[in-house]
Design a protein around this nucleic acid. Sequence first.
RNA 1: GGGGGGUUACCCGAGCGGUCAAAGGGGACGGACUGUAAAUCCGUUGGCAACGCCUUCGCAGGUUCGAAUCCUGCACCCCCCA
Length: 428
Amino acid sequence: MNDIYSELGWRGLIHQTTDACSLSAWLRSGSRRVYVGFDPTATSLHVGHLLPLLTLRRFQRAGHRPIALVGGATGMIGDPSGKSEERNLLSVEELQANIAGMEGQMRRFLDFEAGDHAALLLNNADWMRGFSYLDFLRDVGKNFPVSVMLAKDSVRGRLERAEGGMSYTEFSYMLLQAYDFVYLSQNYDCQLQVGGSDQWGNITSGIDLARRMHGVPLYGLTCPLLTRSDGAKMGKTERGALWLDPDRTSPYAFYQYWINVADEDAGRCLRMLTEVEREEIERLEQSCVEHPEARESQRRLAQEMTRLVHGARGLATAERATAVFFGAAIEDLSDAELVEIFADVPSRELPAAELRDQGLALPDALVAAGLAKSKGEARRIIQQGGAYVNNRRHTDQQTCLTDADRASQTVMVLRAGKKRYALLRFTE
RNA sequence: GGGGGGUUACCCGAGCGGUCAAAGGGGACGGACUGUAAAUCCGUUGGCAACGCCUUCGCAGGUUCGAAUCCUGCACCCCCCA
């Protein structure tokens, strides 16, 4: 049994725990069941979910038995924790799609074949569905003093806001999650719940409930929120969350996010998100101080994260795309390779005939590719030295593109500025 | 109900009869520098068949050789008094 508690400690993954001394001893003394719950709020997990999920994975690697819980029931209500406003309820169809998507992703991070410490994937709808409202009020609700419920941050914060307020439905959310914990402790011998720091209130609700209903003590542990040194939430891009679904956030975009992490954040990310060993991380952190320009930490972080989420193949794609985006030759790649590498990049189809005769004027090509809103803007970009065809700069506005300018059979790679790429595909 | 102020390009904001496609700032975009960073610096920022033409200053009309600028009506916003 590896000492998971001290590993979580040096990785900076412990924000709060109940009774730290006995928790760490309890974890050392046997293979324990641990659970983390995720409400199905989208068809894909995002980086924000990763911290507790990977923590669960660490527990398993240390010899404990993880339970990943999908909130088919709680997702129908909506967790008010950390939300400033009442949210709309998800439809049953949405919920089904979300559950399916998130379950599939969660499976990849845990080992379900690991014999006596195999992971479990459960859905709280399975035990909540048959629970009648009256029974629930009598068995569970009776144990919740309203005064305690009102004191929870998630509730108080909302009630204090003049325009906020909160429905009875969301107010009840904590009872459901509390009951999950009790249920898992009774039926699966699970005595530890892990979650993000915003889950503290819900976790302690479960612990209180277990004590009142059955007189048993349970443990709770929360991970800190992963934030950037500038205060922003890690995993947020200009275009929204960083998703694990490759169709929402491509492996390349995912890789690039980590490559671009600020120096100050790289070490913390390595500790909290990767499975790189302590010595290695300390070496990388040293390198970050002495040779920041090498960006060894970021590179390693990007590799580890991309491999973890998208597999070796996803990492290979991302790295190849990175090489091409930042200067490698484009000419000797095939159609299929180009399309794969530039999967993120917007592409437009044009009839191949455009390249015949006079050819296609460069400004028109930039507009057609969506890199410029007007020909005037396209001309400006060319004039200022920002127009590239297959990574070669063109400064003459009169340039006309012909068959010879294709990078492969049907593809031409256009670029405006350093990073804005677009593909033109020429079809008969 | 009475009185006053406003509505300008992606945003803020100057302009108050011609020289206004409209100052300045922010943002965005391109370039240089660099570590695919930050900071900095330079340039661009309505459209087009482009030394010219067309469309833009809340909306609709009007005065004028000429209007973002003056007049009339309408819409929306803000402030003060009741």
